[in-house]
Design a protein around this nucleic acid. Structure first.
Length: 884
RNA sequence: GGAACCGUAGCUCAGCCGGGAUGAGCGCUCGCCUCACACGCGAGAGGUCAGGAGUUCGAGCCUCCUCGGUUCCACCA
């Protein structure tokens, strides 16, 4: 047994412990058919990422589940890996190059990709190192990367398959375009921001009818350059006569038709909408219905293109200004109103997104979504907490096709090849990349320039990491996985896509449970963000208080799926708890040196020994239940309360006199030591998934013969450790000690002043109990001797006394009796009892309660009333005695 | 416009099947450096469970409404 320091200091110790675990190979899960698998795939952090509180929470939760299952004897695999993070990485590398004066185009595709790989080699492992700091017991030997050979193969396989089934298609569609990143982005990547804008009312002259105008309203006047129609509602009486006529597009001079379409809201604006199919998603749809031409007026960088005539080359906002002022000059601008609206922005760079018509690749979602929806109904997939299945279903039921092409270089390139001669498109795996056009036989084939959305590869993560499309042993054994742990913010991006991909490619849901957690906010409830500078670095927390303290803080005091605020005070409390466990263990180990190591047998145990054994047994059962329901916060709270309130504050205190008197009564001390050792060991095990480091440090000191707590067995409930009688006996003892403490406080009796204590009860069984446990309050209550005697509540005048159920205790303290204080105390007690009695009587005189409530409830209430009545009688008697 | 969540002690939050508010952490008051721990021990103070109505023998918990707050989705040119 090693000497332990006076305060727990996680620094240094944690790294050493982690290194040992890793070296021993405890994290590795090999296929072993004799054991049941339990699998979690880690949401792959971006290689550009720095560990933040979200990761810390996410990975702590997964680590807890994995450690728990591993201790239960499962073959627990936590499959880790990292994500190439297409746009994030590309932006980072470009910035990096910029500082060296190099541009992306200068390098060319090959050269740029080389730089990206270099960047990844240099920084890509950083996040993994940080994940290790919080104690993540992932199987790092199996670490994967979304762009490694296997994952890339899976991506191509899926693309080709979906293309062959007709789910992937190329189409001209209106997509969200980021003019700064110069790429398309998916709907999910668009973030709406409230912006103050204007509503410009503009008159469009009706063709051939001098002096007649149609008034429209728009928030983006520059797009009028691309107008190809006006639209009104078919039922709108105001405009019935002009449907079918033409108007002249101001500033441009083009004649465009007026069409009727139900999309128009008669109540809004003027009831006339300009239709710009190239630059508005709704207009695009209207354009399709009415077969309108599409005129794109913007370049990729959001400047006006050659279709914009004299405005060509101007930035979109410059052009807007000029167009408005020219309209004003021509008297066509009717009015300008202030107008607040939501503007779509790119979630990475916050540039206003420009809807554009571009040829892009899409995944048709309606068929693929069906099994993912059915999964919830069939119970093959469940969210914890359950309410998130509504979010999930709502999105799936309204799903749109997924735009998967991105105009980036870093990532998976689209496996499509075009013939320069005849335009033939071939979709093929890269090993089958065509050199010769299958149609015209020419050799001028070139690959699509675009890449796939990052989430395309992430969607395959649960099975691509296990070897799919190859049919590996791992895939067969560990797949489908069990639980996915993630934040609610990526249900759409990721969870949905993994589920439908799982069904499509493996025929199964990739996991049966999705455990959702919330966001960690700052102490004012704000999101932690770089721009606000309010982020708290988990590594700083670990450095100051240790990983265990951070983990405990993140898990407690928060319901699943809810956001939580981060307070340093709470971390401090968690650290204090680690220290409490440390010190309790230190105390126990000091005394264990005298332990003979023999199991004394349950019969040799004292009531308090059986009591704490019974409690730890119950706690093990309850904690297991909670963990199986993913109630991690509740589970650890129970362990915390048990260790601190019951084990430390009561049991260790009760047992001290026996330890100190081990020379006089070695048998008693031995029973206590056995109990201390056993209960502590079990408590440490229950705590280990949450606080792996302290528990390991203590465990290996306590049990030098054992390798690690990580691979020890999870405590299971034992019938022979259940002692109901002792639990109630100890309740009596605790009552008595509390009474005695109160008395001492009220009487200002110093702890050093010991006293003889008389317990009087008319009931034989109650006297029995006190007789059995009387030694337990010798130390705690400061008693020199305890006399249990038969009799009713007769208190000598020179004693102070207090009531506990079915008994009266008095202490002769001649020198210290203070009649006034004692009377006051008893009066308070009487008032409390009177209140209880009134409530109880009220309930028992309620006929409806008596007739309709379950019989045992009524009986219980009657019991209580009896008890109160007897206590009341005692108090009254003593009050009367005080008067004399 | 649709949806979800929240409103419990001064602050931040727990509260399982409806059955005495058993609450936790921090903060506060009082007393203790008691030979594991002052990162501690003991004793306290503090609550109309947002408001209203209903169901029930009984509601923090179920139903409806109102008020206040947060978030997600959709989006009107």
């Amino acid at each position: 047994m090693k000497e332990l320091a006076k305060t727990y200091d996680p620094k240094g110790m944690e790294d050493q412990i982690y290194k040992n675990w890793e070296e021993k190979g405890y994290f590795h899960a090999a296929v072993d058919r004799s054991k049941k698998p339990f699998t979690i795939v880690m949401p792959p952090p971006n290689i550009t990422g720095q560990l933040h509180m979200g990761h810390a929470l996410d990975n702590t939760m997964q680590d807890i589940l994995i450690r728990y299952k591993r201790m239960q004897g499962y073959n627990a695999l936590w499959q880790p890996g990292t994500d190439h993070a297409a746009i994030s990485t590309e932006v980072k590398v470009i910035e990096n190059l910029k500082s060296q004066g190099i541009s992306k185009d200068e390098l060319g595709r090959e050269g740029f990709l080389e730089k990206c790989w270099e960047w990844r080699r240099e920084y890509g492992g950083r996040i993994v190192k940080q994940l290790k700091k919080i104690g993540s017991s992932a199987d790092w030997e199996r670490e994967r990367f979304t762009m490694d050979e296997g994952c890339s193969e899976a991506v191509e396989e899926v693309f080709v398959k979906l293309y062959e089934k007709g789910y992937i298609y190329k189409g001209e569609k209106i997509i969200n375009w980021c003019p700064v990143c110069q790429t398309s982005i998916s709907d999910a990547e668009v973030e709406y921001e409230d912006q103050h804008g204007h509503f410009w009312h503009i008159n469009y002259p009706v063709a051939g009818e001098e002096g007649r105008f149609v008034q429209i309203a728009t928030t983006r006047p520059e797009t009028m350059l691309g107008d190809t129609a006006l639209a009104v509602h078919p039922d709108d009486e105001r405009y019935k006569d002009i449907v079918g006529k033409n108007v002249i597009l101001p500033l441009v001079g083009r004649e465009i038709p007026i069409v009727a379409d139900e999309y128009v809201d008669m109540e809004f604006g003027t009831g006339v909408v300009k239709i710009t199919p190239a630059h508005d998603p709704n207009d695009f749809e209207v354009g399709k219905r009415h077969d309108l031409p599409i005129i794109n007026v913007l370049n990729d960088d959001a400047t006006i293109n050659e279709n914009g005539g004299k405005y060509a080359g101007m930035d979109r906002y410059e052009a807007r200004k000029l167009i408005v002022s020219e309209l004003e000059e021509q008297g066509l601008l009717v009015k300008v109103e202030d107008h607040d609206h939501n503007v779509g922005t790119h979630d990475r760079c916050h540039t206003t997104v420009e809807p554009m018509v571009k040829p892009q690749w899409f995944v048709a979602m309606s068929e693929l979504a069906k099994p993912a929806i059915a999964a919830i109904e069939k119970g093959e997939l469940k969210f914890v907490p359950e309410r998130f299945d509504k979010t999930y279903l709502h999105w799936l039921e309204n799903i749109r096709d997924w735009c998967i092409s991105r105009q980036l270089w870093w990532g998976h390139r689209i496996p499509a090849y075009y013939c320069d001669e005849c335009g033939e498109i071939v979709v093929a795996r890269s090993k089958d990349a065509p050199d010769v056009c299958p149609k015209c036989g020419c050799t001028h084939m070139h690959q699509d320039e675009d890449n796939l959305d990052t989430w395309f590869s992430s969607a395959l993560w649960p099975f691509s990491t296990l070897g799919w499309p190859k049919s590996t042993e791992e895939l067969d054994y560990f797949y489908p996985t069990d639980v996915l742990v993630t934040g609610y913010d990526i249900i759409f991006f990721w969870v949905v896509r993994m589920v439908f991909s799982g069904y499509e490619h493996t025929g199964k849901s990739p996991f049966h449970t999705v455990l959702i957690h919330g966001l960690i906010r700052d102490d004012q409830g704000r999101k932690m963000s770089k721009s606000l500078g309010n982020g708290i670095d988990p590594l700083e927390v670990i450095d100051k208080y240790g990983a265990d303290a951070l983990r405990l803080t993140l898990i407690t005091g928060n319901a699943p799926g809810n956001d939580m605020r981060f307070y340093w005070e709470r971390v401090e409390n968690s650290r204090n708890f680690a220290n409490k466990v440390w010190n309790a263990s230190r105390f126990i180990m000091m005394h264990l040196e005298a332990f003979d190591g023999k199991d004394p047998g349950l019969d040799a145990l004292y009531p308090e020994d059986r009591w704490i054994l019974s409690l730890v047994n119950t706690v093990a059962r309850d904690v297991t239940e909670n963990m199986d329901k993913f109630e991690l916060g509740i589970a650890v709270q129970k362990v915390y309360d048990f260790i601190w309130d019951e084990f430390c504050d009561w049991y260790i205190e009760i047992v001290k006199p026996r330890l100190y008197a081990k020379a006089e009564d070695p048998k008693s001390a031995n029973a206590a030591l056995w109990t201390l050792n056993t209960v502590l060991t079990n408590a440490l095990k229950l705590l280990h998934p949450y606080m792996p480091f302290v528990t390991e440090a203590i465990f290996t000191s306590l049990h030098p013969e054992e390798e690690s707590i990580m691979i020890s067995d999870w405590p299971v409930y034992r019938e022979d450790w259940h002692f109901a009688a002792e639990e109630s006996e100890l309740d009596h003892a605790k009552d008595l000690v509390r009474g005695m403490r109160n008395l001492r406080t009220d009487m200002d009796v110093p702890p050093s002043k010991k006293a003889k204590l008389f317990v009087t009860s008319a009931k034989a069984d109650v006297r029995d109990i006190f007789e059995k446990v009387k030694h337990t309050y010798m130390g705690l209550a400061g008693a020199t001797e305890v006399v249990v005697q038969e009799g009713d509540a007769g208190i000598p005048g020179d004693a102070v006394s207090f009531v506990i159920p079915d008994a009266v205790v008095y202490v002769p303290l001649e020198d210290l009796v203070d009649k006034a204080k004692e009377t006051e105390r008893l009066t308070k007690e009487r008032d409390r009892l009177a209140k209880e009695l009134a409530r109880s009587k009220g309930m028992l005189s309620n006929e409806k309660f008596l007739s309709k409530a379950p019989a045992e409830k009524v009986a219980e209430e009657k019991e209580k009333q009896k008890k109160y009545e007897s206590m009341m009688a005692d108090v009254e008697a003593r009050l009367a005695a005080m008067k004399n």
